[in-house]
Structures are given as structure tokens and as C-alpha cells.
Amino acid sequence: MTIVFKEESFRDDFTYSNSDWAIQRFPFPFDKDSYMYSVNMERHVPVQAGSVFEAAFDVDEHYVSEMRDRALVLAEDPLRCQSLPHMTLAGWDVLELIMTSKAADYPEHFELHRDGDTWRWINRPLGIDQSFTFLDETTLPYGPLEYITRQAQGDFAVLDQRDDNLWMDAGMVTTQADWSLDFDIGMNFFEWHAPVPKAHEMGIFQRALQYLLNIRQGEPARRLNWTMTVNPLLDTSPENYHKWGVMRGELTPENIGQKLHLRVELQTFYRLPRSNGLLFPIRCYLISLQDLVTVPKWGRRLHRVIRDLPEELATYKGFIDNRPLILEYLSKYDDGAPTSPGIFPD
């Protein structure tokens, strides 16, 4: 399928929007009418043609504009992409995985030609035709991780596995839900999750780590995570919180449907072949409430989830002050009718 790429912005005038196609395939994260933390891992295998779970690395109508936004963030703050010295080989693993996957899943947009270590990569949407030598950094304009993740939607954490733990030792992070790669780089799985309330006591991270340590090559896993963001702002970084935090106070009953977005992370996990590292892509999808409620099941369900969410989680996710306003809006779309199981529209 040929994707038509949109011209849009994720800052200033915020012209980002979802087409009907993008709304229907939005990864709505709630499979029932309530939410609590869980390990919620499943095999990352294609389900439902056209869904965001079909390709290894989903490419959608926002691709070109998202990559432009990433370049703007990096120009402002190069610390958003870092790799500790021992992670270069893992960076090549990532480059290979993304190039081979995109070329296989989207042959009309991406091509990879390999002759031994001599590779040629064609990225049509971004107008790139690059010949280079695999494993030779001098033949690319950036390190391998930065090179390929400037061409792939979503954030990428690259984890080293040692001492029965996972260490956040490299990454490209420009579309994050309020965490800093620069601060967290070098931390282990428990340390970088330290600020998350409740989940430690529930044993979530211990179980998740055990699962992740055992992921094998060719058997990726995935889960969904979510929060809420005012305006379609990809870069909700702590670095820029003093600039975007004020937007949380800009919601009114009149603008909330258009301004408030459900922010969903499709998190996937891939074992890397040479480094034995783990690639942890965190792909961000944004949908305005007014678009979300066009799917009646989602409008009903989101109202119930937000209404019943424990206060601690609403605080951690940053919308406790806005919860009454959100409920006032969503309640209009909840007629009390039962909802069907699963995340997909009826």
C-alpha cells in the first residue's frame, strides 16, 4: 500500500491531525473498561491487516513530518541521541534490523541492496540514497544508531544485557513521555523506572525484567502504554517541561476535544543478534479526544477508565488537575451501554 505522507507540525501551530484511516487503526490501549498496571506482554506478530501491529516498524502518514520534528529537536539538543562507547555494535544491529524490516514491509518506499558489506539504502519518502560499508562508521554521516533512527518513527532505547539486568546504554529519544535519556543513560531497568509509583510494589518490574531477559532472536514482544498530552506535542521531554508544562493549563470545555490527546506508546522488544542487546522501540501515537470519540466503543471506554483510575496514577500521568474537565467532556459519549472485549473498533 502506498502511504500518502502529510505535511504537518507537532509544535507552534500544531497542524497535526489523523485521517479517517489513521483513526480507525489507532492503537487504543484498553481492552476492557478499567486500567491497572500489568506486564501485558504479547508476541509481536502481525494481527489484523492494516493495523499498527502488522509491520515490524509501523510507518504511517505522519512519517515524514515526524522525522522533520526529530531533526529539529536534535538540532536544539544533541544529547537526545547518545550511545555509550560499548554500544556501537548494537547500533549496527539496530540499523540492520530496521533497514531489513522496512524494506520487507514497505518495498514501495524503502529498498536495501546488500553485496557483502557493501550496502545501498534507499528511503524514498525522505529522499535518501546512501551507499555505505556495513560496520564501518566512517561511511555514514552519523553513527549507525543515530543514522537509522533519524529515519524511523518513535523513540529507541538500546539496552545492554549483563548481570541479569538490562542497562539503558544508548538511545534516540525525542518523542518521550517526560523522561530524560541524558539523565537515565547508564541506569539499569529498576533504576530508570524508579520514579514510577505503585508498579515496583506490585512486582511489575521484576516480572517484566524476567520476561525481557528471555526474549530470543526472531521472537519480538510488544505491549501498549499510555498517557494524555495537551496539544499534539511529540517532544514532551523533561528538558523542555518549563516550556510545555504551561499548556496543561490551557484546556477549556470548548477546546478540550481538539486540544487534549490520548498518547499511546507501542513498545516493542527485539533481541539483537551480534551484541545480544535488546532494542526497545517506543512508538508514540497521538489522537485528539474529538477524533477518538468518533469510535463509540472507545468514547465509552475511555470515560470509564479515566473516571476509575486511581489518583496516584492520574497524578503520575500528569492529568489529575484536568480530570474533572476530561470527564465532563467524555461523559457525553458514554451512554452506559456495554462494550465489546478487546481494543479494536466494533
Partner: peptide, 22 residues
């Protein structure tokens, strides 16, 4: 001042306190 600490920085994390209400 958060309790979140980075060994690599040898520092705790400080975050703008009035970002949402300047």
C-alpha cells in the same frame, strides 16, 4: 529536587517547579 539519581552525573534531578503555573 527529585530523589531520581544518576550515577553517571553523580547528581539528583532538578525540575522546574512552576512550569504549569509560571
Amino acid at each position: 529536587v527529585r530523589d531520581h539519581y544518576s550515577r553517571r552525573m553523580a547528581a539528583f534531578q532538578g525540575v522546574c517547579v512552576d512550569a504549569e503555573n509560571p
